[in-house]
């Protein structure tokens, strides 16, 4: 942009010439960018704007075509108790899974990064959940959770604990889903932390060690500040994931019983592709896009000041 500053602030006899050279200056970068601009416009921005536009219309049904409804879809959304319920579920889901999986991932990364015996095995077992599709993970955990003869009840019965019906009661079903998500996501985030930890020069820790820092102090004062960019990156990813990764709901609970484990996107899916109430689903999509944008931007903005970029 700096080059354009040289444009004279008065009407120059060479104005046409300057315009020409400005155009020449911009043309090559624009041409180079154009493939990605076209792709982004076609597949991201135009659909997003179109979605917002569609959210003001009703769902076409049978012989009744779609008609303009203004904000009615949004009013329906606000009046829908199920919407608030799944939004609440999603908030609980996010504020539990995100910190838990990040903390566990960091602990696992530290373990794997230290000189423990059996490191390759640890690395493999922590990473295993990552390579499994979430829908399959859901299936595996379905068996863990089975009342009476599932893994959890079998272990529990060794200690004389009563049987559970984790996915069959309203108080526990969401926690069952939360557990699966933490198990699945932690291994994934561990990879990023591991890369970040290995990027910290060994000298730094040794210098601190010689200066008398305990392991905890080294972690708290050296390691943690140096991996804040990774923590920020992961928390953005984790927040988005908490709102968009719902495959396990399909294999485990279908959002039930009575929406107790339904998340926003699952309810959106149900409205769109089970109830075929597309207009309502579109309004929810707009809500989800806005929500995620606010969260993402806010997170980066908020943490930027405390993040140390090397």
């Amino acid at each position: 942009m700096k080059q354009t500053v040289s444009l004279a602030p008065f009407a120059s006899p060479f104005a046409g010439h300057v315009e020409m050279s400005k155009f020449r200056k911009f043309l090559p970068p624009f041409l180079l960018l154009s493939p990605s601009i076209v792709l982004l416009l076609t597949f991201v921005h135009i659909p997003a704007i179109h979605t917002i536009y569609l959210s003001f219309f009703s769902t076409p049904k049978g012989r009744r075509p779609s008609k303009f409804k203004g904000l009615e879809n949004y009013q329906d959304m606000i009046a829908d108790p199920v919407f608030w319920k799944v939004l609440g579920n999603n908030v609980i889901y996010a504020i539990t899974t995100i910190p838990a999986s990040i903390i566990i991932a960091l602990i696992m990364a530290q373990l794997v990064n230290s000189a423990l015996p059996g490191r390759p095995f640890l690395r493999f077992s922590f990473f295993l959940p990552v390579v499994l599709p979430l829908i399959a993970v859901g299936n595996i955990w379905l068996f863990f959770y089975l009342p009476g003869f599932g893994l959890i009840d079998q272990i529990g019965s060794l200690f004389g604990l009563p049987n559970t019906n984790i996915l069959g009661s309203s108080e526990t079903v969401l926690w069952g889903i939360v557990g699966v998500s933490i198990w699945k996501e932690s291994g994934f985030y561990m990879i990023f932390f591991l890369a970040a930890l290995q990027g910290i020069p060994r000298d730094l820790k040794e210098a601190a060690y010689i200066e008398g820092a305990s392991n905890w102090q080294i972690f708290r004062r050296i390691t943690l500040p140096l991996i804040t960019p990774t923590i920020l990156f992961i928390s953005v990813i984790a927040t988005i994931n908490a709102f968009i990764r719902i495959e396990h709901l399909f294999s485990m609970t279908q959002g039930g019983p009575n929406y107790n484990s339904a998340l926003l996107l699952y309810y959106l899916y149900e409205n769109a592709f089970v109830f075929w109430d597309t207009a309502y689903a579109i309004a929810q999509s707009v809500f989800l896009i806005v929500l995620l944008s606010i969260i993402g931007i806010g997170q980066i903005f908020l943490m930027d000041r405390r993040v140390h970029y090397q």
Binding site: L146, N163, N165, L167, G168, G256
Partner: peptide, 19 residues
């Protein structure tokens, strides 16, 4: 009857296992 929502898939299994 066991309280809560009961899975279809696990029902025959519960029967075989004497639950």
């Amino acid at each position: 009857m066991r309280p809560g929502i009961l899975e279809w898939g696990a029902t025959p299994q519960a029967f075989f296992e004497g639950q």
